[in-house]
Amino acid sequence: MNHTIQLRMMVFSSLMTALIAIGGYLSFPIPLIPVPIVLADFFVMLAGLLLGAAWGSASVGLFLFLGALGMPVFAGGASGVAVFIGPTGGFLVGYLFCALVIGLVSGKGEASLSKDLAALLLGDFVLFGLGITWLKIVLRVTWNKALAFGLLPFIPGTAIKIMAAVMLVRTLRPFLKQVIPQQSKLSL
């Protein structure tokens, strides 16, 4: 493959990794709802949408690697291998599959609004599916309780993020298309 394209994708996916790490510290309040929006998973979605399956999941993988080494990049400044075994570990591993699924679904053929939306919904389904299952196993609670902790407070925020991501991608894609040729999306 062209050396320049590969170098460019490398830098871009490092950029997405940096954004995911910073996104954990960027929070927006939602009116009337106690849980604020945190942008880490928003950038995970964007990584999948903008960089495609291979490079998108590579940038999430790098983020997880940084955290596992001990850099305080996970939510609230946590780090280390122990976080993966903790209650939120499923969500972290879920990020990886979320970016992968979003990249796979949205990257097939010509990009369209409905395809992006389907990709994001499916990606979030995978993310919460893994996250909540793991939460249930670790905390040994009933499904109802796991859903109440892991899903219900995040529904409004996730809906807002999906909306924002779809709108954002429509303006960013033409910009990125100038620098990323299409074929580089799928091969690492």
């Binding site: 460019r8 830098v11 950029l15 929006i37 924002a164 954002l168 303006t171 960013l172 910009f175 990125l176």
Partner: peptide, 27 residues
């Protein structure tokens, strides 16, 4: 919140990708 996220992230990503492009050229 959608407007606020877009107002923050859109210029952020444009600038960040341009910065990344500069790094690519430099490398």
């Amino acid at each position: 919140p959608v407007t606020r996220i877009l107002f923050l992230v859109r210029p952020l990503l444009f600038h960040a990708f341009m910065r990344a492009e500069e790094i690519v050229q430099a490398m």
